[in-house]
Design a protein around this nucleic acid. Structure first.
Lengths: 344, 344
DNA sequence: GGGCGAAATGTGAACGCAAACATGCTTGGC
DNA sequence: GCCAAGCATGTTTGCGTTCACATTTCGCCC
């Protein structure tokens, strides 16, 4: 990166001041909405700004104030539906609050090194606050690099981190899903869990176990998938061969899709032979074949709440560990039915 | 935002200098990898930096140099698979190039106002370059707000914009998809296009028409969907009732999914009665029922190329209008078959 | 109409860094 | 043994903004 663009320097505050016949400080006051500026002066300054096409230099402002209106987001794999929806929601909310977002994209799940660099970056840039989309433990370590004095909000973080957090109540989600299957008449429910490192996976699993315990059902062995249809398919190939397995709670919708495929290939039918329920309610879940019963997570809500929590901290100036829970919702569709009563 | 966090001020360069027993300028030299620093001094400085936990203030650096290593990304709806994959890819590439990314998320498709604000933001922040994920015309207007001297790369932009651009060759994609259906023996191919404002939709449509023209097939009326399964389903409900319609090229995989559902509900079979091909190759496409034949777009490539184009401009210091095309790839699966020869 | 308080505006410094320039030191060639 | 040529380092200045403080202007009351 040897040669370079001419460092772009537009008009500065003193240019505007000269044009409007005032001092640079008055321009600053107008820009920041300070009181004690006469209406006529204000309009003159505003006119000068418009004529010159002046834009205030954010770096200088940050340097002078030690504070920016940029908030950083540390995201895991934003290719996944959940994380990307969340980033989108936070982004929209931020725009509304006149904040801008710097998003650091961590590649892979365990990339602690990448997270560190990103945090480093964000802090150097003078981020006013940080949102960690932290569904995995790896995030916790990177969080420690954040200097005191920069407020943090986690999304899908752990309570023991003692940090403001907002999550979908995945435990309840697991409970809801499992109960729904049980209420349809299944003796027990099998679970294909998501990756172990993800907190959400564990919470859903707990919910599943709790629901089984409620009715005294015995928990069958648990399969472990990734978040992809491909990994769901792998698990499904085993599950499909187990005659007792008539009800499956899948880690998410895509895993459910993979499982359904494996089951169908094995000659069993959904939901007649095997009922299945997903998680997330991706927009296309209702168009799977058959339409997938699932648990909806309101990612948009999560994003907005996260931003609210951050703004609160920014406004009050104190770190909080307040946490918000977003309730999931059961979306009944066509993949859950009563088990066929076999002559047993 | 009245109260506030104490402006976080860590150790500064002169603190490090004092500790290492050198001048702040020497510290700066070490930090920037300048030559003419003795090895012993360098290690002393490095040690001091580590001990103090010093981090250089990026705003000050930007202010002093007039140049930043932040690049801005203006993205449309990052909930969609394509855009989000692209942002992810650009993010990863950027991390490798020691650049950071500020992503502005535009809500909705036509939100020109939002785009303007985002560009405003990005420029104020002193972004060194901008990547516009600009699959719709609305982006062009926002681009005009960017001052001369800031290099731009568009993704899915239009050649007439005279800006460096990288796109998937969607025309060829449309050609490939249509030919594939034609070669399977279908007389003609129906097309459910994506939203009109998206350049990609138009290019795919052109490819479709071209492929039909190649064999002298007449183009049936074209249906128009969004990008969602739901909109695909709506179109599919009509198409399913048209006996002549035996081959459909869908705007993308999700639309294809919706169409398949509509067709199945109507009592027709895929691919026996109707063949269908999608676009994108979302990770779960192979697990749809039946597995979807589709055209893969290598979004990762697109992201990397876009960054390369930007870096080139940054390095040479001249705006270019070079453009790169990423070739799509046909992924044959199970939704395309020969039409049943009816006694006609 | 003199004086007083508030509103309106201006002045100078500081933020943390990098660039340009200045300085002292070492080496080596003749 | 002296000067030139580099190397290693220090000093000063300015980037564009805000902040704390200083100054001017205005309106108003007795």
């Amino acid at each position: 990166m040897s040669a370079a663009f001419p460092p772009h320097r537009g008009p500065v505050m003193s240019d505007v001041a000269a044009r409007a016949g005032v001092s640079h400080q008055t321009v600053s006051r107008v820009l920041n909405g300070h009181p004690h500026v006469s209406a006529t002066t204000r309009t003159r300054v505003l006119a000068a700004i418009a004529e010159l096409g002046y834009r205030r230099n954010l770096s200088a402002r940050v340097l002078a104030t030690g504070r920016s209106n940029v908030i950083g987001v540390v995201a895991q794999n934003t290719t996944l539906y959940g994380p990307s929806s969340m980033v989108q929601a936070i982004g929209e909310a931020a725009l509304g609050a006149d904040l801008s977002l710097t998003v650091g994209h961590v590649a892979g799940y365990d990339a602690t090194a990448a997270s560190r660099r990103i945090v480093e970056r964000l802090v150097q840039q003078g981020a006013a606050g940080l949102v960690f989309i932290a569904p995995v433990d790896a995030a916790a370590e990177a969080m420690r690099l954040v200097p005191e004095g920069i407020p943090i909000v986690t999304v899908d973080g752990l309570p023991e981190w003692q940090v403001a957090n907002v999550s979908v109540d995945q435990y309840t989600g697991g409970l809801l899903a499992t109960r729904h299957l049980l209420e349809a008449g299944h003796r027990t429910v099998w679970h294909v869990a998501g990756p172990e490192q993800w907190h959400g996976s564990r919470a859903r699993e707990d919910g599943w176990r709790a629901a089984l315990a409620e009715v005294g059902a015995v928990a069958p062995p648990m399969a472990r998938a990734g978040w992809s249809a491909a990994s769901g398919y792998q698990c499904g190939r085993m599950l499909a061969r187990i005659p007792d397995c008539t009800a499956i709670f899948a880690a998410n919708d895509h895993v459910a899709l993979g499982i359904m495929r494996a089951i169908t290939e094995q000659g069993r039918r959904v939901p007649d032979d095997v009922s299945i329920i997903g998680f997330d309610d991706v927009p296309e879940a209702g168009y799977f074949h058959p339409a997938l019963t699932t648990i909806r997570q309101e990612f948009g809500d999560v994003g907005r709440q996260a931003l609210r929590l951050l703004l609160d901290q920014l406004a009050t100036g104190v770190k909080s560990a307040e946490s918000a829970l977003v309730e999931p919702l059961l979306i009944p569709r066509d993949t859950v039915a009563a088990p066929e009563r076999k002559p047993s």
